[in-house]
């Protein structure tokens, strides 16, 4: 059991390294060194040479990679090419918004969706189940900006609540203030992960519910509540944690579209700007942060899947 988890951790670390190579190499092949763009036409040969030296571009690619990786581990993400500010400062200015939205979505969206999904699995084929299934089948395939548009139309135009963009500062707001501040982004992301979570948690519970030991519990006269709570959930918990982790990993992607849609500054808007200005040092730093978050969540999903096997939990 432990050795399996350690092996998964090892694979996780290898994944992060592979990610760093992909991001590093990917950004290194930017056509026409990015700094040329920044220095514009006035750049002299001497200027460019000095710049190249400062960025370490005169060294071999392997050396450059190792230096970059070493700096990254120490928390030194370099200096933005576009704004000349240290990247760590750019991130410090903006990370709250992204983290607030992701965490609040997880806190609000996950428990509600799980409850809805498990409830649907308890009454399969009921009207409630069919409506929920239809809604989640529809929402799961819809793009984030469609859901966002629907919510804006409903709240801003039909009900006259809130604003189509997120404006103002979060300073000094408590959790309820933050929820109100980010209501529409949180709602959008919650809907998107809810459709996945409802479907997958429902399927996970139903899968367990069709096993012979549940039939046996029915034939022993075990009440429905206990069948769900003791016999089914105990075996479905692993798959469900797996589903939750996968969806939180998805939030990393979903948050990008939502930030752009509602036009508030966060890490995601920063990376989009970085791509547009070809600020490769900023892309490297942010790319690593996003990908590492993603890899860690995927790792949690995998470990949860391992933990769900009773044979591994209770070895002979």
């Amino acid at each position: 059991m432990l050795s399996l988890i350690i092996r998964r951790l090892g694979i996780g670390i290898i994944s992060v390294l592979a990610v760093s190579v992909i991001i590093f190499v990917g950004t290194m092949i930017l056509p026409g060194d990015a700094e040329q763009i920044r220095l514009c036409q006035e750049a002299t040969e001497a200027n460019i040479a000095a710049m190249r030296e400062r960025l370490g571009l005169d060294k071999s690619i392997v050396e450059q990679y190792l230096i970059w990786l070493g700096n990254f581990v120490r928390g030194d993400l370099g200096v933005s090419l576009a704004s000349d500010a240290p990247i760590i400062e750019l991130i410090a200015d903006r990370y709250h918004n992204t983290v607030y939205v992701a965490v609040l979505t997880a806190l609000i969206g996950v428990p509600i969706s799980l409850a809805l999904g498990i409830l649907a699995a308890m009454f399969p084929g009921s009207l409630y189940d069919r409506i929920l299934t239809f809604v989640s089948v529809s929402l799961v395939a819809a793009p984030e900006f469609f859901t966002a548009t629907l919510l804006v139309l409903l709240f801003v135009f039909a009900l006259g609540i809130g604003n189509a963009v997120v404006v103002g500062s979060t300073e000094g707001k408590d959790i309820f203030g933050l929820i109100a501040h980010f209501a529409l982004p949180i709602a959008t992301l919650s809907f998107v992960i809810a459709s996945q979570l409802i479907r997958m948690s429902r399927a996970a519970v139903l899968n367990v519910m069709s096993s012979p030991y549940i039939e046996m519990a029915i034939l022993k006269g075990v009440p429905r509540r206990r069948i769900i709570m003791r016999h089914a959930l105990l075996n479905a918990i692993g798959p469900i944690v797996n589903v939750v982790a996968l969806n939180l990993a998805y939030l990393v992607t979903g948050v990008i579209v939502v930030e752009v849609y509602f036009g508030y500054p966060g890490l995601a808007t920063l990376i989009v700007q970085a791509v547009q200005t070809r600020d490769f040092i900023l892309i490297q730093g942010l790319g690593m942060i996003f990908c590492m978050t993603y890899v860690v969540l995927m790792l949690i999903a995998d470990v949860a899947a391992l933990m769900s096997n009773p044979r591994l939990r209770h070895p002979k």
């Binding site: 096993s211 012979p212 030991y213 039939e215 046996m216 519990a217 029915i218 034939l219 022993k220 006269g221 075990v222 009440p223 429905r224 003791r230 016999h231 105990l234 075996n235 009773p310 044979r311 939990r313």
Partner: peptide, 28 residues
């Protein structure tokens, strides 16, 4: 209905299936 049958099951009548391996809950 299942509710009407529940008091009988396991007390008046009990069931043994073909495969015990599948019939025991692996986590309990």
């Amino acid at each position: 209905s299942t509710d009407e049958l529940r008091p009988s099951r396991g007390i008046n009548v009990a069931y043994l299936a073909q495969s015990a391996a599948a019939t025991f809950n692996p986590s309990i």
